[in-house]
């Protein structure tokens, strides 16, 4: 039985606590496209790298993105070459940098799923309220349900059920998975991040598979409600609207990303900075795409541990500490 966890934090906690080794042999856990760093398309990173080369630009980013390789280089490389790239804990910190550097243009590298994107939307609303004009966001945000549908529909991926991401679900609610369970007959269990949450979630998922039912269950009731956080979604969709999006490894998925609404186009970094980006070529031999879909394991990759290592990652799954390859490298 193949169960896919669609959240990098689950992937890491499963590896860190050694849950995988304690599971009955019949259950195989595979890791899906649950790490925003890993699924950010190479050309989106290339664009950001071109932008940091422009004079008087300060790039702000979550620490997660620093080592992610684009076609030629990463933020870490660009910083070494003198670019002003700053790690922030919150998008609001980036806005504060914009306030205190009025002569510079501040760009925030926007990545993440539904948990993160509302916080960026709220920051943009705040920038508008304060009439801050030197603050821009690169919108590389992704939405989880369309990716799950793509995997559920795929002929190549054989998954029996989804361990759904707890914190994305805090925002989108369990209702967001109903279509996946009903139409695509995929059992879905939303679970939290403690070892016990994860194990309980897997148990309920196995029960569904065994009974031959497919519904959405919540094993993280203390945080996740049916309707999620409606206020956050309202803010998110006041600034952004859905758009097709390229996922590293998975390709283009319809309506799986976010772009700026017209009213907020002044904050769109892609519009503000017209940069030429080199044509992205994915590294030879890298099977991150297959790994992200759960078709292959990192152990099947010829580059894994030989050329592709955390200190010099080739593919995105080795970059993020929650990437599948990094988790395998570290813990297996």
């Amino acid at each position: 039985m193949k169960l896919m966890e669609v959240c990098g934090t689950h992937t890491v906690n499963i590896a860190r606590s050694g849950i995988k080794k304690l599971l009955p042999k019949e259950i195989e856990l595979i890791s899906g496209p649950g790490c925003p760093v890993c699924v950010t398309d190479q050309s989106d990173i290339d664009r950001a790298i071109e932008i940091v080369k422009i004079k008087d630009v300060i790039m702000t980013t979550f620490g997660d993105m620093m080592r992610v390789p684009g076609t030629k280089s990463s933020f870490m490389d660009a910083k070494r070459d003198g670019a002003d790239i700053r790690i922030v804990y919150s998008c609001l910190d980036a806005l504060n940098i914009a306030c205190s550097n009025p002569a510079k243009r501040i760009v925030f590298m926007g990545v993440g799923f539904e948990t993160t994107s509302p916080t960026i939307a709220a920051t943009i609303l705040e920038a508008k309220r304060q009439k801050i004009r030197n603050f821009f966001v690169l919108s590389n945000f992704k939405l989880i349900p369309p990716a799950l549908v793509a995997i559920a529909k795929s002929d190549r991926v054989k998954v029996n059920g989804f361990v759904c991401p707890g914190h994305v679900s805090v925002i989108i609610g369990s209702a967001a998975y109903v279509e996946i369970a009903k139409r695509y007959k995929m059992p879905c269990v939303i679970t939290g991040f403690d070892d016990i949450d994860i194990v309980k979630g897997i148990k309920r998922l196995v029960e569904q598979v065994k009974k031959g039912v497919s519904k959405v269950e919540i094993e993280y009731k203390r945080a996740v409600k049916k309707n999620g956080n409606a206020a956050a979604r309202r803010i998110l969709y006041s600034v952004f609207e859905t758009a097709d999006s390229d996922w590293r490894g998975l390709g283009r998925i319809k309506k799986s990303g976010l772009r700026f609404k017209k009213v907020y186009k002044d904050f769109d970094a892609e519009r503000e900075f017209k940069v030429e980006i080199p044509k992205a070529t994915s590294p030879k031999g890298c099977i991150c795409g297959e790994v992200l879909q759960g078709i292959e394991s990192p152990l099947d990759c010829k580059l894994f541990k030989k050329v592709c290592k955390p200190e010099r990652p080739i593919g995105p799954c080795m970059v993020s500490s929650e990437g599948t390859c990094a988790a395998y490298y570290k813990y297996e």
Binding site: F62, Y89, S90, C91, L92, D93, T115, T116, P118, T119, A121, A122, T123, L125, E126, H167, V170, I171, A223, V224, G228, N229, A231, A232, I235
Partner: peptide, 23 residues
Amino acid sequence: SLGILSSVEEDDYVLVHAGFAIG
């Protein structure tokens, strides 16, 4: 920030992500 979560009161418990209460 409480910018994306409504009706939060003192003594409530919240989940915090990237400097925001999300739920």
